[in-house]
């Protein structure tokens, strides 16, 4: 039981530190600022801001759907990949490592195009599901690395203790290692959640009617480009900040035991 807590940083993190109990911290400033800004624009300039706001709700719903389905998919895929990466079975290890290597070497946008049109042409997968699969495949690889690092950060003694009691490898992993690794894994995974939420805007390229595409449709018809994208940016900011708050609350809940 070491006293240091391992921290893993994989991508652009936006999880703010909530230890900062000042009334005026970065999170509150951004969150309240965004809300006030939106309220001001919508109430005092209803044309076009109110029109934009009325145009995009179904897009917002699609963004949420894609985000949460992709997070679920990426978590499952990430866990499987992470376990595969530490597997002693050479074949499984090779498959998992190759997957990570390939996915990390291809830009998300290219993957989205590729998977979307490949799935459409050969498997007739509907558009929303294609987007979710593409996002899951991409983020599954990143999360796989987080899971691997998290699992490897747990002291070998924990495995030995569990195995010496008679637990098999799977029981050891799921009862002893993962519950502990989760603490190390959660901050970077939370960052991945937020990065994923932001990256769902890329699916608008695939004609998935998310909040960004709805905004673009509105702007292309009405020519209110600046106004539309101002509102879209504020909406993304609010959602991202809310999600980062949720992740921080989960982190606090998990720190009920000290190492």
């Amino acid at each position: 039981m070491s006293d240091t807590i391992v921290k893993i940083q994989v991508t652009d993190g936006t999880v703010t530190d909530f230890k900062d109990k000042n009334l005026l911290n970065a999170w509150r400033l951004s969150f309240l600022g965004a809300i006030l800004c939106m309220a001001y624009l919508v109430f005092f300039h209803p044309d076009p801001y109110m029109r934009v706001l009325k145009f995009i709700p179904d897009g917002l719903w699609v963004t949420f759907k894609v985000t949460f389905m992709s997070i679920t998919g990426a978590l499952i895929l990430g866990l499987v990949t992470g376990l595969g990466r530490i597997s002693r079975n050479r074949f499984i290890n090779l498959v998992a490592s190759t997957y990570v290597e390939v996915v990390r070497g291809i830009p998300l946008l290219v993957q989205l195009f590729y998977i979307y049109y490949a799935l459409g042409r050969f498997l007739r997968v509907p558009d929303l599901l294609s987007a979710v699969i593409a996002m899951s495949v991409c983020y599954g690889a990143y999360m796989g690395e987080v899971f691997r690092a998290g699992i490897e950060s747990i002291d070998k003694g924990q495995t030995e203790a569990a195995r010496s009691l008679g637990f098999n490898r799977a029981q050891t992993m799921f009862l002893v290692i993962l519950p502990q690794a989760w603490r190390t894994i959660l901050p970077p995974v939370g960052n991945e959640f937020i990065a994923l939420l932001k990256d769902t805007s890329l699916v608008s390229i695939l004609a998935v009617s998310d909040v960004l595409r709805r905004g673009r449709e509105f702007a292309s018809e009405t020519f209110f480009y600046f106004e539309t994208y101002t509102l879209i940016a504020l909406i993304y900011l609010v959602i991202t900040l809310l999600l980062s708050r949720v992740v921080s609350l989960m982190e606090e809940r998990l720190s009920h035991y000290e190492r």
Binding site: M1, G157, E160, A162, L165, G166, N168, L175, E258, R259
Partner: peptide, 28 residues
């Protein structure tokens, strides 16, 4: 695993499960 159930082991570095209470460490 069946053989190990007959063999109790105590380690130099204790290796208690930190995410479980003392009681849970024993009953798990």
């Amino acid at each position: 695993n069946a053989v190990r159930m007959e063999l109790g082991m105590v380690f130099q570095s204790f290796n208690l499960f930190p995410h479980k209470t003392v009681l849970q460490n024993l009953t798990m």
